[in-house]
Amino acid sequence: MKIGVLALQGDFAEHITMLKKIGVETAEVRLPKHLDGLDGLIMPGGESTTIGKLAVAYDLMKPLQEFGKSKAIWGTCAGAIFLSKDIGRDQPLLGLMNIKVQRNAFGRQVDSFETDLEIDELYKATGAEYPYHAVFIRAPIIESVSGKAKVLSKLEDGRIVAAQEGHLLATSFHPELTDDTRFHEYFISLAS
C-alpha cells in the first residue's frame, strides 16, 4: 500500500506524518509522473486557488482525473473543493465528485472553530465509537450531494461537512491536524 499526497501547496507534511503513524508508505506528488505506482491519493488543506493553478501549470488535471476514476482520492478542505464539481465560481476543479461546495462558508479566520462530530461510518469501519473531534479552518461546506455521492457527516445545524462517493472522500475539516488516525484508517480501507 502506497499513498501519495498532493504536495503543490498546503499541509501535505501533516498528512504524511499521519500515514506514517499507521504504517503506510507515502510519496509526495508534484508532477504527473509521481502518480505512478500509487494506490490512492490525499489532497491536503491549503489554498484551493493556489493548488488549482499549480495543477494546471504542471499538467496534472487530466492525470488526476484519470487516477480518480479507479483509485481512491481524499480531499481535506482545499482538497475537497478541488475534488468537487461545482463551487459557484471560476477556478480549476477536478470535478470528480458529485458535490457542490461553498468556499469560506463560515466567515473569516476569527470564525474558524473546533467541534465534535458523530460519524457512524467511521465508527463502523474502525470499531472505535467515540465522537470525532474536527478542526475547521476558513472551512468550506458541502452545500449538496448528488448522483452516487452520500453524506457522511453533518453539523448540528444540518450543514454537510463530509461526503463519500465510492472510493472518493471529501471532508471540510482537517483530520491531519489532530492525533486521531481514524479518518486516515478509513481512507486506507477505501484504497485497499
Binding site: E47, F113, T115
Partner: peptide, 22 residues
Amino acid sequence: MEAKTGTWTEKKGLAQMLKGGV
C-alpha cells in the same frame, strides 16, 4: 459539544495551510 473559536490549534492551523506557499 459547543464549537470553540480562537483556539491555539486554529491559530497555528491556518499557518499550516499556508505552508509551501508565497
